[in-house]
Nucleic acid binder design. Structure first.
Lengths: 335, 335
DNA sequence: ACTGAAAATAAAAACGTTTTTATTTGGAGG
DNA sequence: CCTCCAAATAAAAACGTTTTTATTTTCAGT
């Protein structure tokens, strides 16, 4: 890397002090139009670009928010992240996406003053991380856990309600034997959905059969394999008549498995996902789902973070509503 | 944000100079085990985390590579980025994903010494950007354009060959009327594929009908709408018998459009995509495609970038091979 | 015990900015 | 033609590190 030209050389070129260069370039109005021009010209001539390290070290602000996650893969993350980027732009903030599951890396970035605040997931939700965050007064917004105290806010979906809606929809369609595919263990949204599902089943005095509870991990592949395996190894009369998948991708895996065994959705099984990802409508049959306002979540997360950064308020928690989208994979049980 | 504890306070706590703290904490072996322990203890007690701004300002290295893109949405980006992150980790480098289409933002980050080098796309490929990159000696690897000179390398797919393979496969299956859906205009991969397609068509003395060239933009939605519109407004005897889509998503859109009009792939049309994204196998019918080694591209991009960063060589260009994956959407023409 | 070199530590400089404080400049008012 | 004040600019300090240079400590070898 070649030596970069610094403010010092611009100063020399313009025959002026470095203080003046700084002020001129940052538009402080204490400096004469004439010198502003001289400085700007010199800067342009030398191709000067300010060293952000120097600048941020001094100003102690980065105009960057961190987005810390172990993965960006999948439509949920894609949509969320782009929404965050867009909203952050409205505040003249950049978004610094850091992908790692190494808590060390994330927190050294975080505590190393590389960002003014961050939006995070599960990865940083443990007692140790949270207490550091609180102790250091780091501004944080979580989007997959309800937390609010001190400098921490959160924006989550009403996933319990989502679980309820899914179960209710199936029950209204005559289903009584309903299977469930949880996502990753201890993930808030997944747990909450299961909770809502349980509640509704209980309210209708319907049993939950643990054989029908099959790991899906939010992934099409895992769901496909596990469901296929279940169907191949379980007598037909023990099967449920509907599946609530962990999310849309998981539902797609379920459907594929069923299809491959010569069975059909929704004739033999109903299936339902969560999120309403864009590609969903391109599948055949198109998938019934509970729509989550992902973009709104991204936007609100930024809004809350900005409030924290500007010290406008203490951490608080927002919950976003969800909505049933009926498509072709759920159907009245006709038996 | 609360005041962070600095090296100075650690020094005071450990009754030692800040130089010693720095050396102790960075494992320079000039310092006594006894003081190392004292310092480490003090640092732990005070919850010291080094300010990365200070550190990087001094060392002029960030151990970060930038990934500059206007979008991360879509399986291609997801896969590529995660591969990059993984490989960078092998070099103890972090990846700083910056999403923006604003050239200003990208280059101020870049020239502001925020990263040791970057992997970039189309966005920074224009004469002005390139000449700055060259002039400043910024280390760069592009993955969607063949460029190699000075401090710039590239790792691209052999997209011309991909286009050739696609066309050949269809022609071998008896197709002579073949439509094409380009991606975004002036995008390398798309252009190259078209070139390969043209070549093969010419070699077989087959005409390319411009009515069969339909904008797809690499997107399922755009492709779906445009194909649907084409089919609705064009007499059946003018139709091609096969489509080469811009990528897999585009192919999915094409198939959806055909399906919705009561026609079928591969009975009425063959269709072929590019990339071989993961979800492809879950569609019905599963999609024939030209597989690109996306993960390999990510890996190689990092490898090349590291060579540049360590001044091990001048910019060079790598081209990765591709491969036909026949699935259900292409079929021998039976007329 | 003393010398001298090696080892350990401390002090100071430096990285590139911004900001605070000090100095110079340019006029208006007498 | 001074004096003084405001305006403009320059100088210096500071941000938190690492690195270079200087100083102190340790302890062989006599």
């Amino acid at each position: 890397m070649k030596e970069r030209v610094t403010i010092r050389e611009v100063a020399r070129e313009a025959n002026v002090s470095i203080a003046t260069v700084s002020k001129a370039l940052n538009g402080l109005d204490v400096v004469t139009p004439k010198t502003i021009e001289r400085v700007t010209e010199a800067a342009k001539k030398l191709h000067y670009t300010p060293n952000l390290m120097g600048k941020q070290l001094k100003t102690k602000t980065t105009k960057m928010i961190g987005l810390y996650t172990h993965t960006i893969t999948g439509p949920y993350f894609n949509t969320l992240i782009e929404a965050i980027v867009e909203e952050a732009g409205n505040y003249q903030y950049g978004v610094n996406v850091l992908i790692s599951s190494d808590k060390q890396i994330l927190s050294s970035h975080l505590l190393g003053n590389m960002v003014d605040g961050f939006i995070g997931f599960e990865e940083l939700i443990d007692e140790e991380s949270l207490s550091t965050i609180r102790a250091e007064g780091v501004k944080a917004v979580f989007v997959d856990r309800k937390i609010n105290d001190g400098s921490i806010s959160s924006v989550v979906f009403d996933s319990q309600k989502a679980g309820r809606i899914a179960a209710q929809h199936l029950i209204e369609n005559g289903h009584t034997k309903i299977g469930f595919l949880p996502g990753h263990p201890n993930v808030y949204d997944s747990d909450e959905r299961y909770l809502g599902f349980q509640e509704v089943m209980a309210e209708h005095q319907l049993p939950i059969n643990l054989d029908w509870t099959i790991t899906g991990l939010f992934e099409e592949k895992e769901s496909y394999e596990n469901i296929k395996n279940y169907l191949l190894t379980t007598p037909r009369d023990k099967w449920p008549t509907a599946w609530i998948a962990g999310n849309d991708l998981s539902a797609i895996g379920v459907i594929k498995a069923i299809d491959e065994l010569g069975l059909s959705v929704p004739e033999d099984f109903s299936a339902i996902g969560f999120d309403d990802i864009e590609l969903l409508g391109y599948f055949k049959p198109s998938v019934t789902t509970i729509q989550n306002p992902i973009q709104e979540q991204g936007k609100q997360a930024v809004i809350e973070l900005m409030k924290l950064i500007n010290n406008q308020k203490k951490g608080e928690s927002k919950t976003l509503d969800c909505q049933l989208v009926v498509r072709e994979t759920t159907k009245r049980l006709s038996r």
